[in-house]
């Protein structure tokens, strides 16, 4: 199998306002294979968003490279669609227009982008809300639009930054199942970020476990459980314990 996304020795050092350095990422390495569901799991504030922004090309790394399909990433582009932690829909566009946006701006024909956008809106279960503005949608619905928008960009890799972090537990479970369902219908390469171990185990093909700040990759764990997974299954619980221990372990 070929790897579609390669993270090569990424380092990131922020300069604080007072001039002091803050190392956030340290020699981060991992690869993602085509159609794989990778979950990056790490404690809060460890630099997950920073890593994702670097992959997306929204932030510059201090050193190291990101390759997508063996091409060096230099700036943001539609081959890497992001579902943001804080959603970031365009408030002046309706749900449908938000989803259509990327294909439209890249010059697809109207029939094409319209039917695609409708398809994905339906896929995320938002049929009937095409013409609502984001301000009138609930948090969960907005996040669904965000996911549909990312899908409709037709990216090589989808980058999802704690997309369900702001949702209540019930909706969160629901959305996890939704994502798996959507993934079954439309195979995609996904890099999914979370600080919730249960979520990681429920979704991932492989989990990239990050350490505390400055973050390195502790380990990459392959999860062989079959879907749908049972959160109370003994193997599930064992893995949960093991991975939690990894994060806290001294390097």
């Amino acid at each position: 199998m070929s790897s579609i996304l390669k993270i090569n020795n990424i380092n990131k050092i922020f300069i604080n306002n007072n001039g002091s350095d803050k190392a956030v990422l340290q020699n981060v390495n991992f690869e993602v294979e085509e159609n794989e569901f990778i979950v990056v799991f790490g404690p809060g504030q460890c630099g997950k968003t920073t890593l994702l922004n670097i992959i997306a090309g929204l932030e510059k790394q201090s050193s190291g490279q990101v390759f997508i399909k063996d091409k060096l990433v230099e700036k943001a582009g539609p081959d890497r669609a992001v579902v943001f932690q804080n959603i970031q829909l365009f408030p002046w566009l309706t749900a449908l227009k938000n989803v259509e946006y990327s294909m439209k701006i890249r010059g697809f024909s109207k029939e094409e982008y319209h039917s695609e956008a409708m398809k994905y809106l339906e896929l995320v279960g938002l049929k009937g809300f095409e013409n609502s503005y984001p301000i009138k949608l609930s948090g969960g619905m907005k996040q669904r639009v965000g996911i549909a928008r990312a899908y409709c960009t037709k990216p090589d890799v989808m980058l999802m930054d704690e997309p369900f972090g702001a949702l209540d537990a019930q909706t969160r479970y629901l959305m996890q199942d939704e994502v798996l369902r959507i993934c079954n219908t439309e195979k995609r390469t996904i890099v999914f970020i979370t600080n919730n171990i249960e979520e990681a185990l429920y979704l991932a093909d492989r989990i990239v476990v990050m350490s505390d700040c400055p973050s390195t990759v502790k380990e990459v764990v392959k999860i062989d459980l079959t879907h749908p997974r049972d959160r109370t299954d003994s193997e599930f619980l064992r893995l949960r314990k093991e991975i939690s221990a990894m994060v806290n372990r001294k390097r």
């Binding site: 943001a76 582009g77 701006i105």
Partner: peptide
């Protein structure tokens, strides 16, 4: 951040003004 999102979605620099 809207400009960033727009770039991520494939907006070219000269389209940013009109669309965002």
């Amino acid at each position: 951040s809207y400009l960033d999102v727009a770039r991520m979605l494939g907006t070219k620099e000269n389209q940013l003004f009109l669309h965002i």
